[in-house]
Structures are given as structure tokens and as C-alpha cells.
Computed example of a mutant assay.
Amino acid sequence: MDYNKTLSVIIPVYNTERYLKRCLDSALAALPDNSEILIVNDGSPDQSEKIAMEYFEEFPEIIRYFYKTNGGLSDAKNYGLNHAEGEYIIFLDSDDYIDPDMYNEILNEMKQSGAQLGICDIDCEYETDGSSVISHCYNPNRGSVFFQIIDTPLVAASWNKIIHRSLFNGLDYPTGLNNEDVAVTPIILARANHCVIVKKPMYKYVQRPGSIQNSKFSNKRFVIIETTNIAIERAAELPIHIQRQIKGSLYIHQILGVALYPIRNQQFFKRYSMIKEYMRKVNSCFDDFFQNRYVLDNGLMDNRKHRIFKRLSVILLKRKLYLATSIFFEFINVAEKINAQMVKKGHK
């Protein structure tokens, strides 16, 4: 297939007027030759359209602007894919930004090795306190490059991965569902002939109040069960050992991760109620969940403190001791707060 452009950067936009200029400036600075930026305005009611139009009028050879009625992030991503002309695809969240070397550096590594996919680390920037945490895109304790990438909490992210267009064949983002990347990215990773890892935090992942990931947690986020199920069904096209690795990764980093982190951080009674509801759905949808060896071994490669936390959590959840789980999580939360206060005092 002939491609008109080298790279298509797809930027879905919805209510991010405060961040959009920084995002677009960073994309323009990083854009390789003969590449394009697609701004997909998903019916945003704020001033995002005005900002996007200003950039489109200034850079008409580079930027393509599309307005569509609101259909959600999945719909905006599908729309961008259907209009992209690049041989390679990457997404960029409109409230995030990137280093100027990101796209060229990953593409150069990919072309040198003939890889269909390239990935980099991310820099999580927290608006509330100005802190920053580097998250690696790979797990060095795993063997193959695929397994190193698949066995991480951010495996599903679409914005730190440059992907050859052909890997999207027959795949779309499930319209109307959040956590949409979970249903697509693991399959793309498995399809790639080879993946390259650039061990630099070139993607700036802004953690802001009000974003989808940081908004008030509710049982709407249980949609992760549905998107995980879609990914497992789609993985049926792949070799059985790859299917097992994908399922194991999704079970521990997506399904179990929701219980161990966002649900754990709720107030006690809400936490207890949500654990019961969530785990009943998990057990109903995934009857092999607590027999899966990745779930049973979860935490094996962590430090002692995290290993104990994860292993005890799995034991309690497996036995459906949800009240005991909520109490255990309360002790963990209190301990973490005390530790954070001690660390803070130590820096004064």
C-alpha cells in the first residue's frame, strides 16, 4: 500500500482549551518531514475549536482539522484513523505534550531495525503538587521484548507508541467505552514483527484534576471488564502462548489493578461496596481469574513491601473476604500517608 505521509499524529480534542496550545506546539516541534497532524474536535463546547482553527490556518500544509459531533474518545480515534494518510500512526492526548525529539528518535530506531512498532518511557507530571514520576514502558524482568512491554501497567497506552498502519487492519476502538486502548493496543503489540524500546521519558503525561483518569471514581470505570473481554476475544487469532501472556497482563494490570489502586483509595464504606460489586462482576466474566498463574504470582518481582501487599490482596479477594479486604486496604492507606508525611518532613 502507498502512503502519502510518513507519520500521522492524531489528536482527539474535548474540553482542553487550557492545554491545547502547548500540545500543538510540542507536536509541531517534533513532527518529522512529510508528516501530518490531525486534530479531531469531538464536539468540544469550549474554546478548543477557535484555538485549533488558528493553528490550522497558520499551518495548512501540516495540520488537518476535523469537527464531528460528540461521540466519545473511541469514536474520535476511529475517525482519525479513517482519515490518516501516514504509514505510521501515533495518538497524542490534547492535554499532554511531548519532547521535540520523540517522534524522530523512535522512528529512526524503528527504521534501523525494521520494526513495526516503537515505544518510549513516560514522564507523569502531577499538576496538584508539581511533582514528576518516570514510568518505564518495559519490564526488564521478562524475556522477550514483547513480554517486557506487555507486562507493564501502561501497556494499553496508545500515545507513547508509534505503530505501523497495517497493524490496525480489522481493529477499531469500541465506541462508547472508556479504557478503549485496552481492546486494541495488546493485539497490535502481538501483531508487530518487532518492537523497539527507546528508554527515555519523552511523553509528558499530565495528571490533571477533571481528566478521565483522574475524575471522581465510580462504577462506570468497571467498563475495564468489558474492554478486557474484547481484547481477550480478539487475541484468539494469536498463538496460544501469546494469548496467555496478554490475558495475564490484562488480569493483573487492568482488572486487578482497579481493585488494588483506585477502589482502594475510596472511603471505607464506599470501598467495601465497590469491592463487592466489582469482584462479583469479575468472577462472573472471568471464571479462570483466580486460577490464572499471573494473578497467583502477582507481586513476585516487586520489592518485599509491594509483594506482600499484592499477595495478601489476592488471597483475600480470592476468598471473597471483601470486608477484610477493605479493612486491609485501610491499614495500607494509613501507612502510606504516614510514610509520605515522614518523607516530606525529611526533605525540609
Rank of each mutant, 00 (worst) to 15 (best):
P209V: 01
I188Q: 04
S218Y: 08
F309T: 00
R293K: 14
H241N: 13
K344G: 05
N169C: 10
T228F: 03
F168Q: 09
L238V: 01
S44M: 03
A335D: 05
G80K: 07
G346K: 14
S326C: 05
V198W: 12
N179G: 12
R307A: 05
L323M: 11
N108H: 12
F328A: 13
E109M: 10
E336G: 11
I338H: 04
I275G: 02
L300S: 15
I242M: 03
N15T: 10
K281L: 13
L296S: 02
K111T: 00
Y278C: 07
G71W: 01
I63M: 09
L92K: 06
L7F: 11
E277F: 04
E127C: 05
Y88R: 09
C120I: 02
F56C: 06
E336A: 14
S44N: 02
G130C: 00
I37Y: 08
I315G: 03
L300F: 13
Y55M: 07
H164V: 02
L238W: 02
Q116N: 09
L38S: 12
N108G: 06
E61K: 13
G170T: 05
Y126T: 01
P239Y: 06
P100N: 15
G176Q: 01
P60A: 07
K270F: 08
R221V: 00
T69F: 02
Y322V: 00
T6A: 06
R221P: 01
D95N: 13
R304P: 01
I89W: 04
V196F: 07
P100D: 10
D302K: 02
R307K: 15
A76G: 00
I332F: 12
E330K: 14
R18N: 10
T152H: 03
Y3A: 08
I11D: 04
H83F: 12
R311H: 08
I255M: 00
K310T: 00
L92Y: 09
K68D: 01
D101E: 13
F168I: 06
K345E: 10
I187P: 04
Y138D: 12
N178R: 13
H347M: 10
R311V: 00
R280G: 12
Y205P: 04
Y97L: 04
I240H: 11
Y14I: 04
S35G: 09
C195T: 11
I134V: 11
I187H: 06
K199Q: 14
P201C: 07
K50Y: 03
S48Q: 11
N283M: 10
P174K: 09
K204I: 02
D46M: 08
N193K: 09
I119Q: 06
H253K: 03
L171Q: 06
A30F: 08
K348T: 07
I197Y: 15
D25A: 12
R271K: 14
S211Q: 11
D101Q: 13
K281C: 07
R234V: 00
S215N: 14
H253I: 01
Q112Y: 08
Q267V: 03
G143K: 14
I224T: 09
I149W: 07
H83R: 15
Q245R: 08
L300W: 03
F309G: 01
P174G: 08
G176S: 03
Q245H: 14
K50T: 15
Q243V: 03
T227R: 05
T152N: 05
V295A: 01
N34K: 10
Y19F: 15
D95I: 04
M301L: 15
A235W: 06
G248C: 11
A29D: 13
T6D: 09
G170P: 13
E49D: 09
H136D: 02
E233T: 04
I308E: 07
S35Y: 09
